[in-house]
């Protein structure tokens, strides 16, 4: 398995990358960590004319704390973020989910923005972005915009991003007082893509559950604070509404059951966590 021929451009600056994307349009692909793109190139599932490597752009290498959020630029690798001091305090959901993204050897190269761009419906990094109501910051040569995570993912590996746009950064809201977080997933083996992954965010008024691996994109729903059979009913309705399908890894029924079980577990853990943070 070898990729079809392509040209290669190693951008040293953001402008160079954006110029190249403007010039080549849908013929060009960004390459970041390569952990999703290279398998597709090797299997010739995609045959771009030009790859634009963004990993040497100095300005995109460091996460930037903002008020109430951490902004993670395109050059930040998953392993680097996971090692960031204080990550578990600032972004408990990402700290819990990142170890489930592939393996040590793939996190060493893969980026957060690359995972968001790739938009695999079972990927953990987009799931957390949707759960936390984060944003995707897109930049083209003459435009800049910020898209809410929930609007960014539009289908199975399809997003709002235009061909000439780079995901400059993703913005993850950091821990808010009195809010609790929890993550859980079931896969065939650790490091495999999730069959179902769930992320919960709970505060004094609202429970938010985001589910990956079931619908064609990470999908969230807000509930009031529910317990007992009211919660069971709400989770069951959500599980059905996600329209689970059947594939090699799991039946639709098993996926719905995982949404109910994992959903209940993460909501309860996040609620506990929110109470702890309030006191």
């Amino acid at each position: 398995m070898k990729p079809a021929p392509f040209g290669y451009l190693r951008a040293d600056s953001l402008d160079q990358a954006l110029d190249a994307l403007a010039r080549h349009g849908d013929e060009a692909r960004v390459v970041a960590g390569g952990q999703s793109l290279l398998p597709m190139l090797n299997m010739r599932l995609t045959k771009p004319a030009v790859l634009v490597d963004v990993m040497r752009i100095q300005a995109l290498r460091e996460p930037v704390p903002e008020r109430g959020a951490l902004v993670i630029p395109a050059g930040v690798r998953q392993a680097i973020l996971l090692d960031r001091p204080g990550l578990a305090d600032d972004l408990p959901l990402l700290a819990a989910a990142l170890p489930w993204v592939g393996h040590v050897q793939t996190r060493a190269r893969g980026t957060l923005c690359g995972s968001v761009a790739h938009a695999d419906p079972s990927a953990e990094i987009p799931l957390c972005l949707v759960a936390l109501e984060g944003e995707v910051r897109l930049r083209a040569r003459k435009r800049r915009r910020s898209v809410r995570a929930e609007d960014f993912f539009t289908g199975m590996m399809v997003t709002e991003r235009a061909d000439d746009e780079l995901i400059e950064a993703v913005r993850y809201p950091t821990r808010a007082a009195g809010t609790g977080y929890a993550f859980a997933e079931v896969g065939r083996r650790h490091g495999d893509f999730a069959i179902v992954a769930c992320a919960a965010v709970v505060d004094a008024r609202r429970m938010r559950l985001a589910v990956g691996g079931v619908a064609d994109r990470p999908t969230a729903r807000d509930f009031p604070l529910l317990d007992g059979s009211a919660l069971d009913d709400a989770l069951n309705a959500f599980a059905w509404d996600l329209g689970a399908g059947e594939d090699l890894h799991a039946t639709a029924r098993y996926r719905r059951d995982l949404v109910r079980q994992l959903g209940r577990r993460v909501l309860s853990e996040a609620r506990q966590d929110s109470l702890r943070c309030r006191s």
């Binding site: 398995m1 290669y8 390459v31 390569g34 952990q35 290279l38 398998p39 090797n42 299997m43 790859l51 490597d53 392993a79 393996h103 040590v104 050897q105 793939t106 060493a108 190269r109």
Partner: peptide, 23 residues
């Protein structure tokens, strides 16, 4: 040659990485 088996792993700048997913 798609990142799954690990046979090609080498160290790049001190961290283990898949050579088959590296240009």
């Amino acid at each position: 040659e798609h990142g799954v088996c690990g046979a090609c792993t080498v160290a790049i700048d001190g961290v283990p990485a898949r050579a088959c997913l590296t240009l």
